[in-house]
């Protein structure tokens, strides 16, 4: 037993330097030039979750500044900071102290920057310009299209592509051997298939499945079944059968007991529609539901209240259920 950083394999096996990074080769080569020049522009990392954006940003900073990198590095997550004013103040505070002698700037990593409104991004752009003589920003995002044009044009773009199956399986094999965990080859491939190449999720799943002794296809799916809140599916079934009251009490459980955000609940409902096979509904109904889920997620991002917007989703499912599945479903 040890600290959280050592206990979680995602942290324990996070590559520390750029040379340790096995994939995203082109990106690593370009970044290594910045290290040798001891200079870099503002950077924009775009790509799906678990493709190495944060890892590479951290490795870059460590390579640039050495072991004392924390003195010259500020890490912020746009989803956790309350508003652009908080971000601006933290940046101001951080930028006040002078940079070191060897590298003439300090680095700010702003993760999940695409969760900021475009107004906040405009303000961020001005902040970036204000401190540009002493600081460099690394902005990380999932969706490049959600980053405003003026920021895109002021940053060097790095696109992170989804990891290949052999890369993920090789990394999982390496970790399993280091941890002396026995495994079936096809279990590691199964992990890749269910996480769709998200390295963070893959390693988490490997570590969780190893709790069963051996990592097998069976143990992987067992963990997934226990880790996934079953309330999502139950809630959707109640709603489709027209039982709004029970559907809503499941919703409250997800929001309150599981602490899930409205956005995540919509995404998990979407996953049930796309990949799940537990909902017994016609294919054309799936399309209509997906359409409305998209609208719901859009509104939640716009600021709609989680509980109210999701209640609207459940009411919509009730209407659609009686239309497509019929009264027979309401037993």
């Amino acid at each position: 037993m040890s600290t959280l950083e050592d206990a979680l394999w995602t942290e324990k096996y996070r590559p520390r330097t750029l040379s340790d990074v096995v994939n995203q080769k082109e990106i690593v080569e370009r970044l290594k030039k910045f290290i040798s020049e001891k200079n870099m522009p503002h950077l924009l990392f775009a790509g799906s979750p678990g493709t190495g954006k944060t890892t590479i940003a951290l490795a870059l900073v460590r390579d640039m500044f050495g072991d004392n990198f924390r003195d010259y590095f500020l890490e912020l997550n746009a989803s956790d900071e309350r508003g652009i004013d908080v971000i601006r103040n933290k940046v101001k505070e951080f930028a006040r102290a002078l940079p070191g002698k060897e590298v003439p700037f300090k680095v700010i990593l702003l993760d999940e920057a695409d969760n900021m409104t475009s107004d906040a991004q405009q303000a961020l752009r001005r902040t970036m310009e204000l401190f540009t003589s002493t600081t460099r920003f690394i902005l990380a995002c999932n969706y490049l299209s959600k980053i405003i044009e003026p920021i895109q044009s002021r940053t060097a773009l790095f696109r992170f592509y989804p990891l290949k199956k052999e890369d993920v399986v090789a990394r999982l094999t390496y970790i399993a051997n280091k941890e002396k965990v026995s495994y079936d080859e096809d279990a590691l491939e199964a992990i890749y298939d269910v996480t769709m190449g998200d390295m963070r999720k893959s390693i988490n799943l490997l570590q969780s499945s190893s709790a069963y002794g051996k990592v097998t296809v069976e143990s992987v799916y067992k963990v997934l079944g226990l880790a996934k809140p079953k309330e999502i599916e139950e809630m959707m079934n109640y709603a489709i059968q027209g039982d709004f009251a029970n559907a809503r009490s499941k919703l409250r459980e997800l929001l309150i007991t599981y602490g899930l955000s409205g956005e995540d609940i919509v995404k998990q409902m979407h996953r049930e529609i796309v990949g799940g096979n537990s909902l017994k509904i016609p294919e054309e109904l799936k399309v209509v539901i997906a359409d409305y889920l998209g609208e719901a997620e859009f509104r939640i991002i716009e600021g709609a209240d989680d509980d109210i917007q999701l209640s609207a989703v459940l009411a919509k499912l009730s209407i659609l259920g009686s239309k497509y599945v019929g009264e027979s479903a309401s037993k």
Binding site: A7, L8, N77, S79, A211, K228, P229, G259
Partner: peptide, 26 residues
Amino acid sequence: IAKATHCSSDKAITDYVPFMKFMKVE
């Protein structure tokens, strides 16, 4: 978890919390 793993707390809730029951952590 978010602090230890360099992610947001929403991400910690979806990606880590459900798996914590399988892990030995302090």
